[in-house]
Simulated scan of single mutants.
Amino acid sequence: MNPLPSTESGNGEAPLLSKNKLKKLKRDQEWEANRAKRKGKRREKQIEKKQRKRAARQEAAPISPTKQIPVVENGQEKKIAEPKKSIGQEYTQLPLTLVLDCGFDDLMIDKELKSLGAQVTRCYSDNHKASLQAHLAISSFGGHLKERFDGLLGGQYHSWKNVRFLEGDFVQAANQAKEWMKGEHGGKLAGAFALEDDSSQTSHAQSEAGEVVYLTSDSPDTLTELQPYSTYIIGGLVDRNRHKGVCYKKAIDRGMRTAKLPIGDYMQMTSRFVLATNHVVEIMLRWLELGDWGKAFLQVVPKRKGGVLKSKIQDPDDGAGGEHLAEENAEVKISNSKVEDEDAETLDEEYIS
């Protein structure tokens, strides 16, 4: 810790510091000195939280009789407990691809690149934990983002499942996605896609008709629903609104269709309709489960954006009942189970699995 400057100044040297400024300087120095200790405590709390959740799951799991298997040892037969098999997470793979376009490395400062790393990690975590999973790809994976994942994050992304890290851009990723969604492992129609006819002829026709859309809030077109056998590209850019319209222009220059999520059709917001990359991914995953944009937005959009569901337009024949329904809808507030305003380092540690 650097020594505090003296309150005395001699011979016209550095000006005197007031007692309040000295106290503030001392607090700042102590805060910096204890940074590693605070990070260690956060890590310990996260480990304890995971252990509590694991213990709760084990207690809730049904107890099954242990199977005994015969083993011959020294000429005598003995029975020992059969080793437990690891049970993987059950999920349904959907024929739909989400691509995170991370080709904006040169437009972000270090703090924004750190935030993008946390958002990419969270996108993977949300998709990995979802009961209905999309194919996930990270395009233009390189530069500072790759350095962060290989260095500070210890290359843990190499063990991630159902995600592809690609050096090529989003156009190349979209072309490859057509192959990922074909065949036995391409996915089946479930959730919001369950009403689709899953016959071989229909599935083949849909796979040929699947759309490729770059999602950007600057697009004049609105996405009304997600289509099976389609690829949706989300810009991985954290710029604090410095580079407006960059994703839209990039998509148009490559001749790609653009669209925005229908948040303006369902929500009244006190801020802009621009969402973080991980929020867009989570909203789409919720829609795949629910088939309802309004419910998806309510579950995901951060409370700090001050959004409420738009009141339904009253039909003159509805009378008082219509007014009551409008009042109820106006009072529905956004609920968000995610912890907001966490720093990027905490997000990186918490959501890597």
Score class of each variant (00 low, 15 high):
309 L>M: 10
226 L>I: 03
333 K>F: 05
58 Q>D: 05
174 A>D: 03
34 N>H: 15
133 Q>S: 02
288 L>R: 00
28 D>Y: 07
134 A>E: 03
47 I>R: 07
164 R>Q: 14
177 A>H: 04
333 K>R: 15
194 A>C: 02
163 V>D: 03
16 L>W: 08
130 A>F: 01
51 Q>L: 11
141 F>Q: 02
309 L>A: 13
73 E>V: 15
11 N>E: 15
171 V>S: 08
261 L>E: 03
203 S>G: 02
179 E>W: 05
211 E>M: 12
222 T>L: 04
198 D>S: 14
110 D>K: 05
155 G>K: 11
176 Q>W: 07
123 C>G: 03
305 K>F: 05
96 L>V: 14
18 S>T: 15
19 K>F: 14
38 R>P: 06
342 E>T: 07
248 Y>E: 15
196 E>W: 10
58 Q>V: 11
249 K>V: 07
2 N>Q: 11
171 V>H: 02
191 G>N: 04
141 F>T: 01
147 E>Y: 13
17 L>A: 08
62 P>D: 12
257 R>P: 05
302 P>V: 02
132 L>A: 01
198 D>C: 09
192 A>S: 14
215 L>A: 08
22 L>K: 08
225 E>R: 13
81 A>R: 07
326 A>I: 04
328 E>M: 15
37 K>W: 09
31 W>Y: 12
59 E>K: 10
